[in-house]
Amino acid sequence: MWDWLKQNGLSPKSFYRTSGLCLPWLTVLFLGCAGFGLIDGLYIAPADYQQGDGFRIMYVHVPSAFAAMAVYFAMAICAVLTLVWRVKLAAVCMSCSAPIGASFTFLALVTGSIWGKPMWGTWWIWDARLTSVLILFFLYMGFIALQSILAEQHYRDRACALIALVGVINLPIIHYSVIWWNTLHQGPSISQLAKPAIAPSMLYPLLAMIAAFFLFYLSVLFMRMRNQILLREKHTHWVREVVLS
């Protein structure tokens, strides 16, 4: 079954075709979720009882932080698929995810800083949460740097996979940092076990924005992967047909 999947579902050729069909739908869904999230989050949702309208920064801060971690996790899974099973598509997915994940991490850091100034009274503090997210940003940068120095494809994929795999240790540290240590950053508002500590009218736009960030990640990822696949498979017959058509 696995071999069949690798031959058919996970082959670069079939991915190129399927992703082409998915892209318009992803874009439409993204615009829908982002539109709803923005209108609901910026206009309809009521102001917070403590933070007033300043809490609306949450609707870009939380999704970008969440997506930054999820993208790294996806890269780690791709790393295992690359190192153990040599799935070509996984290596492409991993290397194409990195710049998107890095941009989300940057966004999480800067929007957090913009939120921290009026609420906490400081742009930055070296507490465990902020520092561990900064380390995530450096991991992304390290990955991208390593990718750009190594020339040989096969060697590059494996070296990058190793960084992605080792860096995954940072993810639970980021998540639990606010619980394990005293931090200025507050604890999680949404967790799987407990009822969300956020009113439903304020939660819906957050969920819509999280969905929008993931859909955006998927659509940019697919576009990037399609570009890379053409380059990597340039000697094959099907790529020739795609380019000439």
């Binding site: 102001a47 917070d48 403590q50 906490w120 507050q186 009113a199």
Partner: peptide, 17 residues
Amino acid sequence: DILAKHDEKYMPASVAK
């Protein structure tokens, strides 16, 4: 130097009241 630490709860002012 004093910084404010807020908690993870978010609700509309009407609900808080």
